[in-house]
Amino acid sequence: MQLTLQIIANGLLLGGLYALLAIGLTLIFGVLRVVNFAHAEFMMLGMFGVYWIWRLTGIDPYLATIIIIPLLFAFGLLCDRLIIQRTIGAPEVTVVFATLGLSILLQNAALTAWTADIRSVTTHYTGMVLTPGGLRISVPMLISFAVAMLAALGLWLFLSRTFYGKAIQAVAQNREAAVLMGINVRRVYMWTFTVAVTAAGVMGGLIAPLYSIYPRIGMSFIVTVFVIVVLGGLGSVSGAVLAALLIGLVEASAGYLIGTAWAELSYFLIFLAVLIVRPQGFFGRRGAEVFGGR
């Protein structure tokens, strides 16, 4: 029983990490209809930002995460202005190549600036655990999980309870109608993209004490996060959180029961099964992938 609970706890904590990355990605897709292949690279930049602040000044990684937020935000705005805005409404292949190109650019910029060296943030709480009921819960993982859940809750409240949030939803549902209602669609796009990639950078900061930091670290997350976004339903924040937790649980339990090598295969099988039964994912809308679709 204890072992089962530990596997569930490990899976949920892992899912929490995925969730923070997935909610930003699903929001970008839901609102902008942009498949952001560069999303995990913003996470990588967040990791490097926190690493260098910690390394050069000794500032705690979590405090450093707060420090990098405005930097990530400004960089997100820049990317939006230079690249994303220009791809809105363009053929899908243009969008794909633009974000894929941004991904490659950021990876290679990091490689040039900081070399391929593998770096680590090691603090006194790197190995710290809480032991409720004999379970062992990693404190850094728990912090990441809590931030992800709070971010998802905050985003859900923002989207459903505020005027601006409803404007974002309106743009997501029907761009043309939103324009006719007087919503500044370009501004909605800009804020959505920038907030989402900032969230990815924040996730990078939060996981810096957990994972090694190198220019291609994003590659190890992005495929899983895309699976989560599609499984949860394109554009659905609550769907992304649910799917992230499910994937985390499947990965942890399949890894234990049938082997680590089978963990990825297991959640891909579940992914395919869900898509056969419900092609739009858990909470997605049919046709959500179409620009301006409903």
């Binding site: 072992l3 892992l14 590659m219 190890s220 997350f221 899983t224 339990s253 890894g255 680590t260 963990a263």
Partner: peptide, 21 residues
Amino acid sequence: EESYPAATTRDLSSVLLRIQQ
């Protein structure tokens, strides 16, 4: 005896629990 994909592995807790057992 376990193998795993180095490039995409983000969690080794499962194999560690098996080692513990």
